[in-house]
């Protein structure tokens, strides 16, 4: 099956999931105790104000109508009207989408760059001091709260030795990359903690595979054997770990973006929650979930790219 048709097919299969996502995001804010309008306006709001806001948010309608209205808003791309920004949610989210995507992408690349050599080293020299050191390092890395590590890195690499900016995003691509180094590093360390572990164990398994002996019997140098034969065949389980973890990473951007002042979806979510901007929170929840679903799709495509035995079906 050609790749385009496969993708299309998968996208069609996603429709029920996407409907489910909108339903959950919708219900999330409706089933909560308390009336949103009262919560938004606080004790200052009069009964008239509350009624007005309820009408504005469509909260005076029956639940099923509210949901249909929400679907309509999604279909038109507006995702409803933001209370804080007094503008359509859709375009605001779109604007904030890119910094988050860059952050996720950059940190994933960094994680891969960290993972591959360290996992290979740990696997080839298993039981050695290097192996134990790598294991210990990543147990610590996995246990570190991202915001704390971020603060320490900023202290070290932005204040004491000013190499990277403290916060912000920048205008040109280079500036942005420069700004994203520290936040991406924080995320990448946590990701690599999981991927190094998984890649190490699959490399150890693959190292005793018959075809690795065949490769050695050809007289290939050990480095050629590792990179051409062992690595590729070890990647499958690591790709799935990476795929699952990316959903975690996307969630983690909420904390990291807030810490580093990156104008992405995560920092928007935090500020919208503080501002009780329900339509915005609703739109963001849907956006985050859709991102995760798309990344799962990419993970499946990566399988196909890495392993010719995986059939497109």
């Amino acid at each position: 099956m050609p790749i385009a048709i496969y993708c299309l097919n998968r996208l069609v299969q996603l429709i029920p999931v996407l409907i489910g996502i909108t339903l959950i995001a919708f219900l999330l804010l409706r089933v909560m105790p308390g009336d949103p309008a009262t919560l938004i306006l606080g004790s200052r709001g009069t009964a008239a104000d509350i009624a007005k806001l309820n009408a504005q948010l469509g909260l005076d309608q029956p639940l099923w109508r509210q949901y249909l209205l929400f679907l309509k808003d999604i279909a038109t791309g507006s995702f409803g009207e933001s209370i804080a920004y007094k503008a359509s949610v859709g375009p605001l989210i779109w604007e904030r989408l890119w910094p988050t995507i860059w952050l996720v992408l950059f940190s994933t690349v960094m994680a891969v760059v960290l993972t591959v050599p360290l996992a290979l080293l740990a696997a080839v020299r298993r039981g050695s001091v290097a192996d134990a050191g790598i294991k210990l390092f990543f147990i610590v890395a996995m246990s570190m709260p991202s915001f704390w590590l971020g603060i320490l890195l900023v202290l070290l690499l932005s204040i004491v030795v000013p190499v990277f900016p403290v916060s912000g995003y920048g205008d040109t691509i280079l500036e942005r990359l420069h700004h994203l180094v520290l936040p991406s590093l924080v995320i990448a360390l946590a990701t690599a903690a999981l991927t190094v572990r998984s890649l190490r164990s699959s490399v150890i398994a693959v190292l005793s595979a018959d075809y690795v002996d065949t490769a050695r019997s050809k007289g290939l140098r050990s480095r050629q054997v590792l990179w051409r034969h062992v690595l590729r065949n070890s990647l499958m389980s690591t790709i799935s770990v990476l795929g699952v973890h990316t959903s975690w990473v996307i969630g983690g951007t909420v904390v990291i973006e807030t810490l580093f002042g990156i104008p992405g979806l995560g920092s928007l979510l935090v500020s919208s929650i503080s501002a009780r901007d329900y339509p915005m929170v609703q739109g963001l929840t849907v956006t985050f979930a859709v991102l995760v679903v798309l990344i799962n799709l990419l993970t499946d495509l990566a399988y196909v790219a890495v392993d010719p035995r995986v059939k497109l079906s």
């Binding site: 999330l28 909560m32 959903s247 009780r276 929170v281």
Partner: peptide
């Protein structure tokens, strides 16, 4: 499962 952990938790806590 499609909703990132932090997003869901923060949204719920935020709403409540």
């Amino acid at each position: 499962w499609a909703f990132p952990f932090y997003v869901l938790v923060i949204s719920i806590v935020g709403a409540l």
